[in-house]
Nucleic acid binder design. Structure first.
Lengths: 163, 163
DNA sequence: TTGATAATGAAAGTCATTTTCATTAATTGG
DNA sequence: CCAATTAATGAAAATGACTTTCATTATCAA
């Protein structure tokens, strides 16, 4: 099922209404393969659709999160970011504390051990957040020290990786 | 070395000054073995030392973090918490999304795999955050559904645990 | 087409920090 | 010990990232 269909179905299921702003925001959101903040998305949306307000982007992103089109991530830097989640499998993040580049990673062995760990405490795991902070090779050799998180981050592709 | 000594040494090293509020805040902070918010610590501090302001607690906690006496943790609920870090080994958190109880946990195998994972990307790991969210046994059987995170959380002791 | 009401944009409100600024209090050279 | 220097503090104002309100606009079912 396409993302637009996911949204449609969700909207219908809840007795909500279709709207242009939501379509437009979804389209722009999908076109940006990146962890994005509300402000960044708002800026991108306004380029194509000047009339759309911040609150609408905010509310729409919440809506997307509700229907599984995006999920919130927190890199402990004060602002929440949103990433595509529909059709994207679970992954964790590897973040360079120097230049802000990040990778989406998954290690199935770690995932298994997390389940085991949690069971020991009688918990039933719902989800987890694992962020690994460190310095990337480039930053360690002194290159690329200027790129900021606000620049264009490099990412691994799509949660394929490790193990 | 005692915590107070750590603070003293740090202050001297930076050419800062000793102060009563800082001593008092440290003393109260150390007396509370829990993940605490600024407001909670401020409230506790004021009981013994009414004159101390919020900003001082805020700044002092930042100072503690700088000298390794505490570290910030984020349970994605909007407020930062602070936990003792001096003499406390690294640990991750297992949080019940229903009642807010949490456990401090460590799994050395996971730690090893994290190192391995990061190396694959040419990163040098500095630190990580791993929070596992789920439901505890009590909440699953319907007991204890009322306790809030603001209540007294149960915790495992001190990062001893799992393998 | 139209009434009911969801969606939107602009603006105001929240809330957890952060920072400012006038004072107070450590330090230190004398 | 004393005064000058300046870090530390408390109260209040400022930030910044959301959240919510409210008057309008836009949907949609009848």
């Amino acid at each position: 099922m396409k993302e637009t269909a996911v949204l449609e179905r969700f909207i219908e299921g809840k007795g909500l209404r279709h709207s242009k702003p939501r379509e437009q925001i979804l389209s722009v959101f999908l076109s940006i393969e990146q962890h994005i903040t509300i402000d960044e998305l708002w800026a991108a949306v306004r380029k194509k659709h000047p009339g759309i307000g911040y609150a609408t982007v905010y509310r729409t992103l919440k809506l997307f999160a509700e229907c599984g089109l995006c999920s919130e991530i927190n890199f402990e830097d004060g602002t929440t970011r949103y990433e595509h989640s529909y059709g994207h499998s679970h992954h964790d993040h590897l973040i360079c504390t120097s230049c802000g580049k990040f990778f989406e990673v998954v290690d199935s062995e770690i995932e298994k051990l997390q389940e085991r760990l949690v069971k020991r405490y009688g918990f039933q795991l719902q989800y987890h957040r694992m962020n690994l902070y460190g310095t990337c090779r480039n930053c360690r050799v002194g290159i690329d020290r200027r790129a900021a998180r606000t620049g264009v981050p490099v990412h691994s592709g799509k949660g394929r990786a490790a193990s």
